[in-house]
Amino acid sequence: MLTSLYRHGDVFLQATLPPTGPLHLAPHLTLAHGGTTGHAHRIAETHAAHLYDGSGPHRYLHVTAAHATLTHEEHAPIRLPAGWYRVWRQREYTPVAVRVVLD
């Protein structure tokens, strides 16, 4: 089985089955904020998706419309088809700690 993966700067999305654990609906559609520029990875169409915080570091995006557009000021937009996606930030190793990469 092939899994659809999307990379949008330092944000990764993986098509997945609906999560089974507890989810908390986020009041926005911002997947991640850039730490150095203040820019954000967000869904452009407010009616097209819901963002959920799961247990642990992952978020889940549920695209409920035929598609949703992931935007960011420094990256080309990505059109995501309907479905569930696990969302996470890229990490990097340093001798001090593993840390989240900031766009």
Rank of each mutant, 00 (worst) to 15 (best):
G9M: 04
D10P: 00
D10A: 09
V11A: 14
V11I: 15
V11T: 15
V11Q: 11
F12S: 14
L13C: 12
Q14W: 11
Q14G: 11
A15L: 13
A15R: 15
A15P: 01
T16I: 12
T16Y: 00
L17N: 13
L17E: 12
L17K: 06
P18Q: 09
P18D: 00
P18S: 05
P18F: 04
P19I: 01
P19H: 03
T20F: 08
T20E: 05
T20C: 02
T20W: 02
G21L: 06
G21W: 02
G21P: 02
P22C: 10
P22M: 05
L23E: 06
L23C: 08
H24E: 09
H24Q: 13
L25P: 02
L25S: 03
L25M: 06
P27C: 07
P27Q: 11
H28V: 03
L29W: 06
L29Y: 08
L29A: 08
T30L: 07
T30C: 01
L31Y: 07
H33D: 01
H33G: 00
H33S: 04
G34I: 03
G34V: 13
G35Q: 08
T36K: 13
T37N: 13
T37D: 14
G38M: 03
G38R: 08
G38D: 07
G38V: 04
H39V: 10
H39L: 12
A40F: 03
H41N: 14
H41V: 12
R42L: 13
R42N: 05
I43V: 15
I43A: 01
A44E: 13
E45L: 11
E45K: 05
T46H: 14
T46M: 14
H47Q: 14
H47F: 15
A48E: 11
A48N: 07
A48D: 05
A48F: 13
A48I: 10
A48M: 08
A49T: 02
A49F: 02
H50W: 02
H50Y: 01
H50R: 05
L51Y: 05
L51W: 06
L51I: 07
Y52A: 04
Y52H: 00
Y52M: 00
D53G: 01
G54V: 04
G54N: 09
P57G: 10
P57H: 10
H58W: 08
R59G: 05
R59S: 09
R59E: 04
Y60V: 02
Y60H: 09
L61C: 07
L61N: 08
H62M: 05
V63D: 06
V63T: 10
T64E: 01
T64C: 09
A65N: 12
A65W: 09
A65I: 08
A65Y: 09
A65E: 13
A66R: 14
A66K: 15
H67F: 11
A68F: 04
T69V: 15
T69E: 07
L70Y: 00
L70T: 12
L70S: 05
T71S: 10
T71V: 15
H72N: 09
H72R: 07
E74T: 01
E74I: 01
E74S: 08
H75R: 01
H75N: 04
H75L: 06
A76P: 04
A76I: 04
P77E: 11
P77R: 13
I78V: 15
R79V: 15
L80G: 00
L80E: 04
L80Q: 08
P81M: 11
P81L: 12
P81D: 00
A82T: 10
A82W: 09
A82Q: 13
G83N: 07
G83L: 12
G83F: 06
W84D: 00
W84M: 12
W84Q: 02
